[in-house]
Computed example of a mutant assay.
Amino acid sequence: MIDYVELRRGMVDSQVRTNNVTDPGIVGAMLEIPRELFVPAQLKSLAYIDDDLALTSGSPTRYLIEPMILARLIQEADVQEHDHVLDIGGGTGYSAAVLSRLAQQVVAVEEDAGLAATATATLAEIGVANVAVMQGPLNAGWKAEAPYDLVLLNGSVDEVPAALFDQVKEGGRLVAVVGHGGAGKACVFTKVAGSVSERVAFNAAVPALPGFKAAPRFTF
């Protein structure tokens, strides 16, 4: 029988803590939340490996991003207990579950109907009551519940659409990996006086989220 508690502890000790994640709230959440419930049945034994895990087949394939990158992104987001958070492309709900332990309320947007249904069921199964899972295009966010203190994108993008920055509260943050593969940069955007500043936090290679390709630009 697989000891998931021990695997969870190993994930935190060997992946999360060693990636400069020191926030006790994040560490505690990742020690408690059963990640194996958020992956397809055939991948449960791999739920705690240091890699992205495919949640769907076909194109585009959706992934649960590797634990150490997710933990670092959330730490860079500086989540506060009063925060209203938009979690974009969270798949089966694992990132929303982690955020639920840190923030007051989380809105999780997922465009894949099957993933959204799984997220709703799994979050209910483990007793998460402050997450609402919504189905819709990832690049549109969820305007009905805006503005948000924090917007987190679970994957890499070519660029962040203006529609998402419009949903960030004054003084709020948006965290995303911009660029793909070796060119990916985890960026923290902050909205101040209507303008957006950008800080590159670290290099990150994570799977792309669908719907975020840069618009074609004319060159002369």
Rank of each mutant, 00 (worst) to 15 (best):
A54G: 13
L73T: 06
M68T: 13
T56L: 06
T56E: 10
D78W: 01
D52I: 11
T61Y: 09
T61L: 08
Y63C: 01
L55G: 00
M68D: 09
P67V: 03
M68K: 15
L55N: 02
I49K: 10
P60V: 06
D50Q: 09
P67H: 09
L64P: 06
L55R: 08
R72D: 01
T61W: 10
T61F: 02
I49Y: 14
L64K: 01
E66T: 15
A54F: 03
T56G: 07
L70C: 08
D52M: 10
A71S: 13
G58A: 07
P60G: 06
R62P: 01
I65K: 07
E76L: 12
I74E: 04
L64E: 11
A54N: 12
I49F: 12
Y48E: 01
E76P: 03
L53C: 02
I74T: 06
S57R: 15
L70R: 06
R72V: 00
L64H: 05
D52E: 11
L73E: 11
Y48A: 01
L53A: 00
D51V: 03
D78Y: 02
Q75A: 02
S57Y: 12
I65P: 07
L55M: 03
T61E: 11
I74L: 13
A54H: 05
L53Q: 07
Q75E: 15
D51P: 03
A54Y: 03
E66I: 14
L64F: 07
L55T: 05
M68V: 11
I74C: 00
P60M: 11
L55W: 03
S59K: 15
T61D: 07
Q75D: 01
P67G: 05
T61K: 15
L70E: 10
R62H: 09
L55F: 07
G58D: 01
E66F: 09
Y63N: 04
A71N: 06
L64Q: 06
E66P: 12
S59D: 13
A71M: 04
E76Y: 13
R72F: 10
Q75W: 04
D50C: 09
P67Q: 06
D51W: 07
T61C: 13
E76I: 12
L53G: 03
A54T: 03
A77L: 04
A71Q: 00
M68N: 13
I69S: 04
E76H: 12
L53P: 03
D50W: 11
L70A: 06
P67I: 08
I74P: 07
L70T: 01
R62T: 05
D78V: 09
G58H: 08
I49M: 14
A77Y: 04
L64A: 12
E76T: 10
S59Q: 14
S57T: 14
A71G: 08
L73W: 05
M68L: 12
E76K: 15
R72M: 10
P60A: 05
M68G: 03
L55K: 05
M68H: 15
L53Y: 02
Q75S: 03
A54W: 06
E66D: 12
D51Q: 12
S57F: 13
S59I: 13
D51L: 07
P60S: 09
R62Q: 15
Y63G: 02
D50V: 05
Y48N: 00
I49A: 13
Q75T: 10
S57D: 14
L64W: 02
D50R: 11
A77T: 05
E76V: 15
D78M: 03
Y48F: 00
R72T: 01
M68F: 14
Q75V: 13
A77D: 05
L53H: 00
P60Q: 05
